[in-house]
Design a protein around this nucleic acid. Structure first.
Ligand SMILES: [Mn+2]
Ligand SMILES: [Mn+2]
Ligand SMILES: [Zn+2]
Ligand SMILES: [Zn+2]
Lengths: 127, 127
DNA sequence: ATGATTTTGCAAACCATTCGCAAATTAGGG
DNA sequence: CCCTAATTTGCGAATGGTTTGCAAAATCAT
């Protein structure tokens, strides 16, 4: 398999995601890096985001304008609560799904294989 | 307010969605219409889909390749179970969310305002 | 029917994302 | 360190879904 080099641009992109803890587009990350005088090309931002998403270190999401956005994330199955005010993303453990799976199977004959959930509202800090 | 004309192209796009009952992209709808010798321009397909989504008669979703897809849908709040085999979309009523809302509030101080869920699996017919 | 209003089709513009490739960077052995 | 091979970067060009401007066609109210 091909080796993965630990490079400065990759670390800088990753650092932005770890610091911000909210969904960011490639363009936004690029802008943030430029402000801090870290000149990483937009192409490299895109490539690094694909890499992080592939390794499961970041989670992707398409925002309402159709742009791909990413947030730092760990592999385990869970869901996200996104603050409408500050954008912060909090992990939400996945329980409550077993009952839904049962309801789906008995009510529609549907065999549940996977699911996605997202929550929106106001975080504790913003209230 | 501006009037909404009931036109042939719009009815044809809408009819495809009502018949198929699965998520379709503008290009797919355009192709289906061409096969049935209904020559509606791709632009009009896009415009009609925006219209239907705006009126709540269709629900939009961005597929894994980044393309916007639409399915016929009614206004009431509910969720979708999508068959991985035939693509059919079934409406799923929304219960199970109250408990999640409570858990979010007590566990994170998060005030839940909205949520989205999607289910994937195998429908009764395909099993 | 007639005229005002809205919609259509077409091509061009848009814009986020991807790609090709030469130059720059990294890793690792000597 | 030094050298080389492997990988990554940056740039500009290409891609492809979606939007838009505008003249011609269709729809609606009178
Ligand atoms: Mn997460
Ligand atoms: Mn529906
Ligand atoms: Zn907040
Ligand atoms: Zn099916």
């Amino acid at each position: 398999m091909r080796a993965a080099y630990a490079t400065r641009p990759r670390e800088q992109v990753s650092a932005v995601l770890r610091r911000e803890k909210r969904y960011l587009s490639a363009a936004e990350i690029h802008a943030i890096l430029r402000k801090s005088r870290a000149n990483v090309s937009l192409s490299t931002v895109y490539r690094t985001l694909d890499l992080l998403a592939g390794k499961g270190e970041a989670s992707a999401r398409v925002d309402e304008r159709g742009e791909a956005t990413f947030v730092v994330c760990d592999q385990s199955h869970h869901h996200h609560a996104v603050c409408n005010t500050c954008g912060k993303v909090e992990d939400v453990s996945c329980e409550a799904i077993e009952s839904v799976a049962n309801a789906l199977r008995s009510h529609h004959g549907f065999k549940l294989a996977d699911h996605e959930m997202e929550f929106f509202g106001t975080c504790g800090a913003c209230r």
